Simulated scan of single mutants.
Amino acid sequence: MKSIIYILLLFAANLNAQTASKEQIISGLPEIEITEGINLHIISPEPIQYVDLSTENLTGDLPTSSIARIKITNEQNSELKEKKVKPIAFFNGDKIGIITVVGQSFIAQYKAIYKNSESLNTVTNIHIQPEAMQPVEFDKMIFSNLELRKFAMDIIQKKSENNPIRVEKDFNLSLQLNNVYVISDYIFLDMTFKNNSNLSYDIEALKFSIEDKKIYKATNNQSIEMTPLFQLNPQKHFKKNFRNIYVFKKFTYPNSKVLMIRLIEEQLSGRTIEMKVNYSDILKADTF
């Protein structure tokens, strides 16, 4: 009996060793050199979620979603200035701090090492390499309709109607895609409908579907209907202008297809207007 228990304990220990995540220690971190007065740009292969700098000797920002800009700072707070404490002087090879960059699927950490400005080989940018990445998996967020409404209201307060991504006009109607936003696994379409005629417009349906960009035969067209998870305003009638937010779970489609948006009037001889949205427009979505 004891031998069986011993074997089971060994099996459990081996299983834990195989499934445990690899720990990272400071001595094993890759080094990157940084020089005072020169910005170091860390380029990520995917959007950066956040950057952590372990000491006040470093400061930085995110000029774009995939670039972290880091520099050495010797700025002191008012308390230290009053005490006339001299700024820290760095020498070649000094360890300044730890830089942590977290992407959508990885975490990368580096030891920042000081290098003086007299060197002709000053590093100004680095690309995060696969060997420096440790995979991470974030929980997918699920938002309630109340939270989706709050996000949609935040969007509706933005003045983005003057520079729409796409506009289609027909029958004295205008259908425009103001902007595309993304948060977690949700896509928000900000849309405005304009009626330049004297006849009010009764909406029978606003349909979203993924369709072939080029249709050679009607029988070959594959249409996949998309249903919004949430819309800010259920309004079915408008006289002049109507703006609304439509929320979808994250979706993708190839370049050979488009997102087709159809606004259909309720009457028998109703006015219908269509818009084709390329996947590149979705990829350029803003975050908020």
Rank of each mutant, 00 (worst) to 15 (best):
E225G: 00
P254R: 05
R69D: 07
I210C: 00
K150W: 05
V167T: 13
P164E: 07
I261K: 04
H41W: 05
K158D: 15
N195D: 08
N16H: 11
L53Q: 11
K207W: 03
D61N: 14
I25F: 15
V123R: 07
D94S: 12
H127G: 09
N125A: 12
T272M: 11
S280Y: 13
D154V: 08
I25H: 13
I155K: 10
D202E: 15
I142R: 12
I245K: 09
E211S: 12
S174Q: 15
T59L: 12
G60H: 08
R166N: 08
L175I: 03
N195E: 13
S184I: 01
V258E: 03
L80M: 10
L263W: 10
F106N: 03
F288T: 03
E225P: 01
N163Q: 12
N221Y: 02
I264Q: 11
Q24W: 00
M275Q: 10
S160K: 06
A12F: 15
Q176L: 12
I224Y: 00
Y253F: 15
I4A: 09
P63L: 10
R69C: 04
A68T: 09
F288D: 02
K140W: 00
L189S: 06
P135Q: 04
I273E: 06
I155V: 14
L232M: 09
L206R: 02
T219S: 09
P30V: 12
G97M: 02
S184L: 03
F242T: 08
R262W: 04
I26G: 00
L120K: 14
L15S: 07
A68V: 07
L229K: 09
Y114P: 05
F242E: 10
I32R: 03
V102M: 06
Y181I: 01
K140I: 11
I4D: 04
I88V: 13
